[in-house]
Amino acid sequence: MDEQIVVAGALFSEAGLLVAQRQRPPELAGLWELPGGKVAAGESDAEALARELREELGVEVSVGARLGADVALKAGMTLRAYRATLTSGSPHPHDHRALRWVTVDELDDLPWVPADRAWLAELADALRSGAPLD
């Protein structure tokens, strides 16, 4: 079987970085992550991320550049992050317990899902540069 790609969106605004609190599975419930999901057969990473953020948050986004390195998940799954820019809508937690905008000073204080911790340095750099837009 082919490798399963999972995409995550680093959605930035003047308010900071949008993070989502997991509702499930039980071992990850309550932890924070970048929202996203699995790439379906025939979809590009960008198409999958735009679809996942539409489903999970109710927003339309423009997907930009990759952020950080790929993160190996369980056997055969790879997680990758992309910058995303909100083009319409206001985020709502359809598939999460909660959403919040965080600043660079709050990044290290959040209980992150383990895989997303790999990107904290890149996320902090992006927030410090004030820079979401690609």
Results as ranks from 00 to 15, higher is better:
Gly76Trp: 01
Arg97Pro: 04
Leu73Arg: 08
Glu56Ser: 14
Leu99Thr: 07
Lys38Met: 13
Val71Ser: 08
Arg54Glu: 14
Glu122Asp: 15
Glu55Thr: 13
Val39Ser: 05
Ala40Thr: 11
Gly68Cys: 02
Val39His: 04
Pro93Thr: 05
Glu55Pro: 11
Ser62Asp: 13
Ala81Asp: 00
Lys74Gln: 06
Ala46Val: 02
Asp45Phe: 05
Glu56Thr: 08
Ala48Phe: 03
Arg100Tyr: 08
Asp109His: 12
Glu52Gln: 14
Gly36Ser: 08
Lys74Met: 01
Gly68His: 00
Trp119Ala: 05
Trp32Asp: 01
Arg51Leu: 10
Glu43His: 11
Ser88Ala: 15
Glu60Met: 08
Ala75Arg: 14
Pro114Gly: 09
Glu43Lys: 10
Asp95Leu: 10
Val113Gln: 02
Val113Asp: 02
Ala46Tyr: 03
Ser44Leu: 01
His94Lys: 13
Ala48Asp: 08
Leu99Gly: 10
Val59Asp: 03
Val61Pro: 06
Trp112Ala: 12
His94Arg: 15
Met77Glu: 14
Arg100Ile: 06
Val61Cys: 11
Ser88His: 09
Glu60Phe: 07
Arg83Ala: 10
Leu49Gln: 07
Ser62Phe: 12
Leu120Asp: 06
Leu110Cys: 01
Gly36His: 07
Ser88Phe: 01
Ala98Ser: 13
His94Ala: 14
Ala98Pro: 12
Val113Lys: 00
Leu86Pro: 04
Ala121Lys: 11
Ala41Cys: 09
Gly76Pro: 09
Val71Leu: 04
Arg80Lys: 12
Pro91Phe: 10
Ala48Gln: 06
Arg54Trp: 10
Thr103Ile: 00
Ala41Pro: 11
Lys38Thr: 15
Asp109Arg: 15
His94Met: 02
Gly42Thr: 09
Ser62Val: 09
Gly68Pro: 07
Thr78Ser: 09
Glu106Ala: 14
Glu52Gly: 03
Met77Trp: 06
Ala84Ile: 04
Arg117Ala: 09
Ala98Gln: 13
Arg51His: 12
Leu79Asn: 08
Trp112Ser: 11
Ala75Glu: 13
Asp105Phe: 03
Leu73Lys: 08
Gly64Met: 00
Leu34Ala: 07
Leu86Val: 02
Val59Pro: 04
Gly58Trp: 08
Thr78Glu: 06
Arg97Asn: 13
Leu110Glu: 02
Ala84His: 02
Glu33Trp: 00
Gly89His: 01
Gly58Arg: 15
Glu56Leu: 03
Trp32Gly: 04
Ala40Cys: 06
Gly58Val: 05
Leu110Asn: 03
Asp95Cys: 09
Asp95Met: 10
Arg66Glu: 14
Ala65Met: 09
His94Asp: 02
Thr78Asn: 04
Gly89Val: 01
Arg100Asn: 00
Ala118Leu: 00
Arg97Ser: 13
Ala81Gln: 00
Tyr82Cys: 05
Ala41Glu: 12
Arg80Pro: 11
Arg80Glu: 12
Glu106Lys: 01
Arg97Cys: 12
Ala115Ser: 15
Arg97Leu: 15
His92Leu: 14
Ser90Gly: 07
His96Glu: 01
Ser88Tyr: 00
Glu47Trp: 06
Glu60Pro: 09
Gly36Ile: 05
Pro91Ala: 15
Thr85Tyr: 05
Ala50Leu: 06
Arg80Ile: 09
Leu120Ala: 08
Arg54Phe: 12
Arg100Leu: 05
Leu49Phe: 04
Val104Lys: 10
Ala41Arg: 14
Arg66Ser: 14
Pro91Trp: 11
Leu120Thr: 13
Arg54Asn: 11
Val61His: 06
Ala69Tyr: 00
Val63Thr: 06
Arg51Asn: 08
Glu33Asp: 12
Trp101Glu: 05
Arg66Cys: 10
